[in-house]
Amino acid sequence: MGHAGHRARRQSPPLSPLPFRLVVFDFDGTLADSFPWFASILNEVATRYRFQRIAEDDTEMLRGLDARAIIRHLGIPAWKLPFITRNMHALATRDIAAIHLFPGITAMLDALTHSGIRLAIVSSNVEPNIRTVLGPREAGLIGHYACGASLFGKARRLRSLIRTTGERPADILYIGDEIRDAVAARDAGCAFGAVAWGYTRLDALAKCDPALIFQTPRDISASLAKIPVASPSVTNPQHPG
């Protein structure tokens, strides 16, 4: 998925010494492998709310678009979006056993936590669904949840999170898999890290000029979880006397 030639890379804004003090994750498509479930129920939702059904050969084309372009393509009026979102949350709760974390996510969250980086989630999904998929142990690693954001409301949630945590935007990395995640990070003044395994194709995400691109969850911990090694303490020799 995406271009193998892309590797984790750094651009502006400048990184903190850790290099980031707070890493914020999107959930669906970033931590959770929910796209197969999403694709399986989308036409059910389309029938209920009377928007265009998705043909199988349209999927890759739609994965290259931003959310506004997808909505236009499907012919969804803005007034229907809150109703569709609530229905999707209910369906996710119904089918929660079908949604799992991507391989390597647990080890990555552990590595970031052990390196002293604070973790948070900003997502359009609801917190109970997110906690269920994470499981009690991994859910406990997340210090802040800002969930249930509207389709285009993630920047507001990020700004609220910045105020709550007291961190500077320059010390925060928002990691996501959609163009709207990149836009939210930019609008909140945070750096954006793009993942290659989510809903949006990596070639489309790369056009958003992410600060970092991750091919695998392991790339996240390899790039960010830099645990300082303490210098050996020097003790003065004991002199008799």
Rank of each mutant, 00 (worst) to 15 (best):
V24Y: 07
A194F: 07
T216F: 04
V126L: 13
Q215S: 14
N87T: 15
G148E: 13
P82S: 07
G241W: 05
A146S: 15
L81S: 02
R180F: 10
P17H: 14
R156E: 15
R168D: 15
F152R: 14
R9M: 15
T132W: 07
P169I: 14
A149R: 05
A8N: 12
A185V: 08
F152I: 06
P14W: 13
F35W: 15
P210R: 06
V24R: 08
S124V: 02
I172N: 07
A98W: 10
I172P: 06
W197K: 10
G2E: 03
S40T: 11
M108K: 03
A92V: 11
N125Y: 03
G153T: 00
Y199D: 08
I70E: 05
R21P: 00
H100L: 06
T106E: 12
G140V: 06
C208G: 01
A230S: 11
D58I: 00
I213A: 04
I175D: 04
S12V: 11
R156F: 07
G104Y: 09
R168W: 11
R180K: 10
R50F: 10
L161Q: 08
L65Q: 02
W197I: 12
D181K: 03
G166M: 00
T47N: 12
D58S: 11
I220L: 09
I76E: 02
G116H: 01
A120C: 06
F83E: 08
A111H: 08
A120T: 06
P82G: 05
R94V: 05
G75Q: 11
I142Q: 04
R157L: 05
G116N: 01
T164W: 12
R180V: 02
G29N: 13
M108F: 02
A8R: 07
N236K: 02
F35T: 14
H73G: 00
H239S: 07
V24G: 09
P82N: 06
G75F: 13
H114A: 10
L134V: 14
Y145T: 06
T59H: 00
L112R: 01
A225N: 12
S233H: 04
P77I: 05
N236D: 10
M61W: 12
A204F: 14
L173A: 13
V122L: 00
I213G: 02
D26T: 06
A4E: 08
R156D: 15
W37V: 10
A191R: 03
S223Q: 14
I54Y: 01
P237E: 04
